[in-house]
């Protein structure tokens, strides 16, 4: 009954479609994540309230986290599979290879930028999810604007600044190819819309990059 799913997912287009869909959903997550983070600039209480609302989701937060994990795992698993297959498709390399202007820095470095983002993600999760100062923040009796302080305190220091900027730069470069590429993979190409999607994809990547990068900068100048 479900053999068509297996067939679809093992086809070249099925693999790429899965990467495109999971990637676009992850972009949706990034937009929501940045929107929440930008509350830091409103006032500490607003960010505190946002953090508390997330915390108050209780078990449902775990469900969301599992969904997010599934998106990452799916995206990465299919990426690894396509990279391995693509390497296998050409064992004998060209002695001279000159690109004709199709390939871009972003498109050529997708596996590299993806790996940097993944490594950064581990660091980021250790900072704020597993080991960070958010723990115990919402324990009974705790109050005040602690969540914003946790962010500023965690991100202070040059090591954090360097790691975050590298991770965010890799993410920006990754997305500058990824967003328009996802639309193409889903077959959504149109003479009128594609130029907008291409420019809009780069613009969204840069806006997300600048938005996220502003936070370690803000932490540094505090």
């Amino acid at each position: 009954m479900f053999t068509w799913i297996g067939q679809f997912l093992s086809s070249s287009i099925g693999k790429k479609t899965t990467m495109a869909l999971t990637g676009l959903l992850l972009v949706g997550f990034l937009i929501a994540h940045l929107a929440g983070n930008l509350l830091l600039y409103k006032d500490p209480e607003a960010f505190e309230a946002y953090a508390r609302k997330l915390h108050d989701l209780g078990p449902f937060l775990y469900v969301l986290e599992l969904g997010l994990l599934a998106l990452f795992v799916g995206h990465i698993a299919f990426a690894v599979r396509t990279i391995v297959e693509n390497r296998k498709a050409r064992h004998s390399k060209y002695a001279v290879q000159a690109d004709r202007g199709g390939k871009t820095l972003a498109s050529a470095t997708m596996p590299l930028t993806g790996t940097i983002v993944l490594l950064f993600l581990f660091w980021h999760l250790i900072d704020f999810r597993f080991d960070g100062g958010f723990k115990g923040l919402f324990a009974d009796g705790a109050s005040g604007a602690g969540a914003a302080d946790v962010v500023w305190n965690t991100l202070g220091g040059t090591a954090h600044m360097a790691v975050y900027l590298l991770g965010i730069a890799a993410l920006t470069l990754h997305l500058s190819h990824a967003i328009q590429s996802a639309f193409q993979t889903l077959g959504l190409r149109h003479p009128k819309w594609t130029p907008l999607i291409e420019r809009g994809g780069v613009a969204l990547a840069v806006l997300l990059g600048l938005g996220f990068a502003s936070i370690p900068f803000a932490a540094a100048i505090r």
Binding site: S12, K16, K88, H177, T185
Partner: peptide
Amino acid sequence: MVQAMDSEGFGNCTNHYECSKA
């Protein structure tokens, strides 16, 4: 045709668009 293409061992498209330029 996609099944035949895949079984011939061609790689997966990652939208570099070098094909169209060439």
